[in-house]
């Protein structure tokens, strides 16, 4: 009886989907407001849905997996056409994703992956954080052009996966350049305040003249470090080259002022590729690959940073 019911229900959902290309409903279970980037992701997802004429049902999980599971069950009960999930943790998703699968609702993971059988979700749209680190490292390698360059590194929160991956990628990129060497590396906890404090310490223990470049695992720490460099009487961007990751609005402001040199974008537009995939699937049933890597775009002072700042400042960073 219940099987029949769910079959009928999924048929009822599928019929209108096939009938019309637009007007689908997509449920989005977001983690919560843990950082500015995530707020921007939410904003961009809403914008993308609006542009494509998709009705977005948004659920904020306030950093709790049980809320996300409840939200997904709610989406299934409402009979949405697809579910976007930014998973707060990697494990414990099997049961609820099974339910979505039984209801024939495709699930797409955004910006984080999970430990679950691959057939439980359609695809995962994430950035490759090792690649981000490599893009940053390659930029620096080109920028110094063979000159001797001692680097200081501001790591993210110790043990967090972006900190580990971004460090790894950067180190791989500079491994074949004997002129590039990391002389000091400390954690700045991904925050401006700690980035500033640690940079102050670097400037004293190494001496400002002995630091050629700073690599920060996120822009916020770089912004803090820029202030420390200025207070030490040096010119950030000239005396010390600065490369970081994320591309938040404030780093573009710093780049415009010539105080930072490059940033690698962690795009908040994870929903765009996800919607592309869904539209193709709805059109002719195309199944995407299991992993869609977002572009890790490099911005330097050659770009129009004023315009980028304007386009990003209202996204909620």
């Amino acid at each position: 009886m219940t099987i029949l019911k769910s079959l009928l229900a999924s048929a009822a959902i599928l019929v209108p989907v096939v009938a019309m290309a637009e007007g689908e409903t997509v449920g989005f279970s977001q983690i919560g407001s843990e950082s500015g980037w995530r707020a921007a992701e939410t904003t961009v997802t809403k914008q993308q849905a609006e542009e494509r004429g998709i009705t977005l049902k948004f659920a904020d999980a306030q950093q709790k997996q049980e809320n996300q599971i409840k939200a997904i069950r709610g989406f299934v009960a409402q009979g949405v056409d697809a579910i976007l999930l930014a998973p707060v943790v990697a494990t414990g998703w099997e049961d609820v994703l099974e339910e979505a699968k039984d209801a024939d609702i495709p699930v797409i993971l955004l910006d984080r992956n999970i430990d679950a059988p691959e057939d439980l979700y359609m695809t995962a749209v994430t950035s490759d954080q090792v690649h981000e680190g490599m893009v940053a490292g390659n930029w620096l390698k080109e920028a110094v052009a063979g000159e001797e360059c001692p680097i200081v590194e501001l790591q993210g929160t110790t043990g967090s996966s972006p900190a580990i991956s971004r460090k790894k990628g950067f180190e791989e990129a500079i491994a074949d350049a004997p002129n590039l060497k990391i002389t000091r590396s400390q954690t700045g906890d991904f925050t401006r305040a700690q980035g500033k404090v640690v940079m102050e310490s670097f400037l004293k223990s190494e001496g400002g003249a002995n630091i050629c470049a700073l690599y920060a695992h996120n822009d916020d720490m770089a912004v803090g470090a820029i202030q420390a460099i200025k207070e030490a009487g040096l010119k950030p961007g000239e005396d010390i080259k600065i490369v970081s990751i994320d591309s938040v609005p404030d780093i573009h402001l710093a780049m415009k002022a010539g105080e930072a040199n490059a940033t690698v974008e962690l795009t908040p537009n994870m929903a765009g590729p996800a919607f592309d995939v869904l539209e193709a699937y709805w059109k002719d049933g195309t199944m995407p690959p299991k992993w869609i890597q977002t572009e890790s775009k490099l911005y330097t002072s050659d770009d129009d940073n004023a315009a980028i700042y304007e386009s990003k400042k209202d996204l909620g960073y």
């Binding site: 843990e34 925050t191 401006r192 305040a193 803090g224 202030q227």
Partner: peptide
């Protein structure tokens, strides 16, 4: 004032 910004998540 130190970081010219109020960081409610981390301050």
């Amino acid at each position: 004032a130190d970081i010219k910004g109020a960081d409610a998540n981390n301050a």
